[in-house]
Amino acid sequence: MIKVEGLTKRYARTVAVDNVSFEVAKGQIVGFLGPNGAGKTTTMRVLTCFLPPSAGQAEVAGFNVTADPMEVKKRIGYLPEVPPLYPEMEVLEYLTFVGRLKGIPKADLPARVKSVSERCNIADVGAKLIAKLSKGYRQRVGLAQAIIHNPEVLILDEPTAGLDPKQIIETRELIKSLAGDHTIILSTHILPEVEQTCEKVIIINKGKVVAIDTVNNLTSRLRGSEAVAVEVSAKNGELGAAQVQQRLEQVPGVSRVVTRSGKEGHLRFEVESLQGHHIRPEIARGVVDSGWNLHELHAVAFSLEEVFLELTSTETVAQTKGAAQ
């Protein structure tokens, strides 16, 4: 549905998006994840034909953004970071205006306006001036504006920014309910959002794509090495942490052992394995054979947050190295 190849956008002095390529299949929700200034908004603006790319190709629903912008625009619903609302208009009036602008036939317009305002839970403020709406309502009117012409592709730039927790949950639910009919790209710098709403995630940092994968794969890819939490105590008498650590390090396949703070005299460790090793049985055997009590042994999932931090921070290191050379 969306195909981006070698997309580059340069401004006068900076490169905002550098050789970005990705694809999004029909009906998917894809999260565009990256810190502020990573190039998320710029990429989205290219996809919506707001900005022309400096180099590379972008295709939406089979139409090129530079060659056929009109066809692309017809098939896209876009919610910019700040919802594009006219404060002097009433909600219904605004939706009708946008509907006309998007080329909805006159006969269908009232029905479309009604159905999107129900879908976005704004039917109760239809006669209110947009200037008088709260932030949450504005965001929903913005979303209603994006879906009014039933576009094949929805592009949402930080759709939950600045909302309170309850509104964030509602907005996420709404976005999830839109998947299937629509292909959705949403950008965010909030990790849990991607975890909760997206099937696939594109991580972007400093204009470059760092990783593209499903949330699960991304987590396990980094985990290919597995992390295990171990809690141990002495059967009788004292037990030194160093002693246990030494024993754990002897287990084949262990790459690193980190001491964590345990409670009630228990010693707690986090053990990381080399890629492709299953170390849990060996650890259990090692602990029991040494005559200690094994209280806990389980795999620790890297949260996407760690994935993100790891991916983006190693990227930074690599880049500064490159600059130094």
């Binding site: 919506t48 034909c49 707001f50 009109m70 896209i76 876009y78 910019p80 609302l85 006219y86 946008v98």
Partner: peptide
């Protein structure tokens, strides 16, 4: 200033 230009420019209007 208000960003509504993005709506106009990304709509199928010349």
């Amino acid at each position: 200033r208000s960003g509504t230009i993005e709506l106009l420019v990304t709509s199928p209007v010349r």
